[in-house]
Design a protein around this nucleic acid. Structure first.
Lengths: 138, 138
DNA sequence: TGTTTTATATCTTTCATTACGATATAATCG
DNA sequence: CGATTATATCGTAATGAAAGATATAAAACA
């Protein structure tokens, strides 16, 4: 079982290595993680970021400031509690996040084109299963 | 077809978001990419790094210096051409790379445990297919 | 209503990182 | 031997990341 896990991780990292985008932007790991959090979770504010990337509130607030300056994020306030910030990805932010975490769509399409229908189904099914179960149990 | 690609990317990023390690180290994106390159490709030296992350040779050399100081890498020379550097991951470097690019093995094991044998097979097959084809055609 | 708490924001300071151009060194090629 | 290639180092500059201290403004509480 442990060996299955390692094997899957090796496949996982190989896939990413060969199919990721050749990203140009100079971007820090922290900033990518903040983009991921805002993308995948609802109603993310400054304190959610602080606890997620384990920094103080003021540092998180500065990250947000810089990311808004760079047009990655926009900021609104929670209408039910005007103290609370709610962050949103801009289209540009989504693009940057995509280029830094997704698989290159052209490369992926090229790989998928080489698969027969059965293999293509297996791939789609497998990732669907993993993503659904991961969401459920984490 | 394009929608299959987007769908797979959404599954892909969801899986990573929910199953990655809660990494603590402050590490830059560039450094992670260098670790990936040294891990996945043979005989990586300073100039390979420079062209991979698109910086000048001197900058690449400085990256290598810092990464050796941090004990991520060790440096040897190509016996056939003593000008050329060949880089290797240390155990610590492998560990850092793992924590920053792989899925958390405990979380992954937990998810896999919820699958029946058929589903487990599909997952293993699918990632194997993708990684093999990605290696072949890139 | 007045006080406290909560959620952010800003200011200052410090340190590390990233990058480049210029220059240096050392091995190999012709 | 001179040219080329691969890497290293130096000086310098810009930026980023982080924390502590302090400030503000909204909400909760007594």
């Amino acid at each position: 079982m442990n060996s299955t896990v390692s094997l899957i991780n090796e496949y996982w990292t190989d896939i990413y290595f060969h199919l990721h985008y050749l990203h140009k932007e100079k971007i820090s790991h922290q900033v990518v993680r903040i983009l991921q959090l805002v993308d995948k979770q609802k109603e993310v504010g400054v304190s959610e970021i602080a606890s997620y990337i384990q920094v103080s509130h003021n540092t998180a607030s500065e990250h947000v400031k810089r990311m808004i300056e760079k047009k990655y994020l926009i900021k609104t306030r929670d209408p039910l509690d005007e103290r609370k910030v709610i962050l949103w990805l801009t289209d540009f932010g989504k693009e940057v996040l995509h280029r830094n975490t997704s698989l290159d769509e052209e490369k992926l399409a090229q790989v998928l084109n080489q698969l027969d229908n059965n293999e293509k189904n297996i791939v789609e099914q497998a990732l669907k299963i993993l993503s659904e179960r991961a969401k459920q149990c984490m």
